[in-house]
Design a protein around this nucleic acid. Sequence first.
DNA 1: CCCCTTGCTGACAGCACTGTCAGCAATTTA
DNA 2: TAAATTGCTGACAGTGCTGTCAGCAAGGGG
Lengths: 210, 210
Amino acid sequence: MTTDIAHGDAPAYRRRKDHRPDEIVAAALEEFNFRGFAGASMARIAKGAGVSRATLYLYFENKEALFLAVAEAAMAGFTRDAARKVEFDDHTTEETLRALFRQFYAMMTSTKNSALMRILISEGPSMPGLVQAYHEQILRNGRQLLERIIARGLERGELRPCPATRIPQLLIAPAMFFAIHSMVFGELETLDEEAFAEGHLDIIMRGIAA
Amino acid sequence: MTTDIAHGDAPAYRRRKDHRPDEIVAAALEEFNFRGFAGASMARIAKGAGVSRATLYLYFENKEALFLAVAEAAMAGFTRDAARKVEFDDHTTEETLRALFRQFYAMMTSTKNSALMRILISEGPSMPGLVQAYHEQILRNGRQLLERIIARGLERGELRPCPATRIPQLLIAPAMFFAIHSMVFGELETLDEEAFAEGHLDIIMRGIAA
DNA sequence: CCCCTTGCTGACAGCACTGTCAGCAATTTA
DNA sequence: TAAATTGCTGACAGTGCTGTCAGCAAGGGG
């Protein structure tokens, strides 16, 4: 009856102390993403992780601690991915931005980041600490990277000084829009990522190029 | 002790059949926005509306019906505001877009629309009907309006055919980004709406102008 | 002034979910 | 193989919430 390898005396459970946390966090991410914090049920998370409900409390103090662990893990994944730095010394600003955007679109549309964004938007008001952590750990670095690229572009005369070069968020806004649009309306109306990203870069480069 | 006008025999409640629904919906919007559907409590909504919990069930069948009424009301408000049509026959495409964007930013950053967006993002996965209604009632019209403006701009030779003119979402993406950014990070980092909108228009016009 | 209609409420039942705990059984050690 | 360790579970208590209902009282009609 159990899904075990061996026939015969099937054990009711296996002891797998070091695999549990990740499996629980993964199941929890899905549940929190779909139902939100309040709507999530520890029972469903346990089921998803293939474990009893009480086990969750062996690894996480309570529901909120598990939630924070999920968010933390998603953020860690984000910064880890972003650590693949964009090398831009040898390239034009356009080439650099193209590479950055490509990487950024891939990251933004990953299911993990979608979940993280949804969680931030949904639970932000009741968990300001989470918002602050995201802001400090992720947004700040992203903005600084962008500012460096822009500064270099201006210095080299490849970009013109304009309102947009003073508000780096303007440059990546369409990518975030795309991610959220896909997340919310993906089932109803699929935007072509390739075409969207290409149009995005096109409009940006024409808009800020010298 | 009651907050009534007259002293003396203060009535415990007043009968106000025709004011109740709006007051309940208003209180519910706030609660749903802050806590999400699952986290919202009918007791808190009742308190916010200055009414007993049982009264909610006189006007709305259950929590979900109240939630849908809230969403419906927010959407109605949205389309009503948008009905102030942008007259663009006599103006250049840039002037038209400028007027449209100004109106759009005002709408997007209103607390009502912020709440609607948060609700859509949070509860969308478990309430696909809501997403579809928003998509049909609001997004479709907005996109068509934009497409008409773009078509006229191309016709007049004020815009150049480019990827962005084929994906109208690209044009308004920064405004939606701004709304969500303000909603989530408004307390930590305030973007200047005026400057952002100006930069947005600047970059767009340079990007798609002929 | 008194009665009738009905908007509104307090109290009740039922449910789902969180967090806990004694004890079972999978695995390790001797 | 037998004993010790400990990862894991089923069952329990407690809580907060939704939806219901008999009845009170505000306001209108006679």
